[in-house]
Amino acid sequence: MPVAIPVGTHLPHAVGVAWAAKLKGEKTVAVVYFGDGATSKGDFHEALNFAGVFKTPTIFFCQNNQFAISVPRSLQTASKTIAQKAIAYGFDGIQVDGNDLFAVIAVTKEAVEKARSGGGATLIEGVTFRFGPHTTADDPTKYRTEAEIEPWKPLDPMIRLRLYLKEKGLWNEEVEQRMTEEAQKEIDQAVVDAEAVPPPGPAEIFKYVFEEMTPPLKEQLGYLKSTLA
């Protein structure tokens, strides 16, 4: 599950998916991604507590980019690491260099294998840094200095991966240009396709909460239609 706009609300959902899979005897593992700011939300603690008690096959991946919008990690939590929070819930927590692609793959793979074998949940803290603004409405110069950013620039995962691939003879400028052009074409086409989809009607908000619409929702839908008629 990707990062959710209402911060942290998707963590309990991921645990629910994992719990359902466990009850059904499936080998499904739920992986949920969130930022360091989400660790201050009640949903985070409820989700990890449930996952610990019932040993659900859940991987909690915290992308710790040092800032929750403008709040630095030092004001977000007093714990030395985010990974160590897992101790309180009775399962493993691991901190990894979030800018090292291969390290992230390795710890995630290990956590998946553990979850599938009945070992329960894992909290992974990927330590990284947010170079740009949080959103287009954000101005990071208001709360951090250029001096704070400089040490992280050489650790940019894109730069590190590019250098690694070049060293292995798997990357060059020609390959990069070709792949960049191909990716841009895909993005442009995706935008065209998305803009061609007609906007949903107001009735759509009632259709996807439950597999079958409940009587109260049907009543509300009927009322909405009558007011729009």
Score class of each variant (00 low, 15 high):
T77K: 12
I124V: 05
F206I: 03
T227Y: 06
K142M: 03
F54W: 14
L23S: 03
F60K: 06
K153F: 14
A183K: 10
A20I: 00
Y164C: 04
V175M: 09
C62P: 11
A196I: 12
A121K: 09
G93L: 04
A203M: 00
L224C: 11
L101M: 13
L48H: 11
P6I: 11
D100A: 07
R116H: 02
I94P: 06
G25F: 01
E219A: 13
I149C: 04
N65R: 04
Q76W: 13
G222P: 08
I149G: 05
A137E: 14
I94F: 06
K142W: 03
D92S: 04
L228Q: 08
K142H: 08
V29R: 02
T122L: 04
Q95A: 14
G16S: 08
T56M: 01
K55D: 04
I187V: 14
H10K: 04
F102V: 04
A83K: 00
P154L: 14
E150T: 15
I69C: 13
V3I: 11
Q84G: 02
Y164I: 03
G126I: 07
Q66L: 07
G98K: 03
P151I: 09
D156I: 06
P12N: 06
V191D: 01
L170E: 00
L224F: 13
G25C: 04
E211W: 02
E148N: 10
I149S: 01
A83V: 00
L228S: 09
P6L: 10
E182F: 14
Q95Y: 02
T28M: 07
D193S: 08
G118L: 13
T122Q: 05
H45L: 00
E174I: 07
L23R: 08
Q95I: 10
K153D: 15
T180L: 03
L228H: 07
A78E: 10
L163Q: 12
D156C: 13
L163E: 15
D156E: 08
F129A: 03
I87Q: 05
L161S: 10
A83T: 01
F129D: 04
K22P: 15
A4E: 01
E125Y: 04
P2C: 00
C62L: 03
V96I: 12
T9S: 14
A183H: 06
Y164R: 07
A229T: 09
P151N: 08
K142Q: 12
K153Y: 14
E110D: 09
W152T: 07
K80F: 07
H45P: 03
I59W: 02
P200L: 05
A86G: 11
V209N: 15
Y143H: 14
G42P: 06
P154M: 15
Q177Y: 06
G126Y: 01
T128S: 11
E148Y: 00
E173K: 02
L23I: 07
E167W: 03
T39S: 15
V31M: 11
E26N: 02
F129T: 09
G42E: 10
M213A: 00
G119S: 14
F44H: 09
H134A: 13
A68T: 06
Q189F: 05
A51F: 05
P2R: 00
P6C: 11
P202L: 07
V107Y: 07
P57E: 15
T9N: 09
V29P: 03
K185N: 15
P57S: 15
L161W: 07
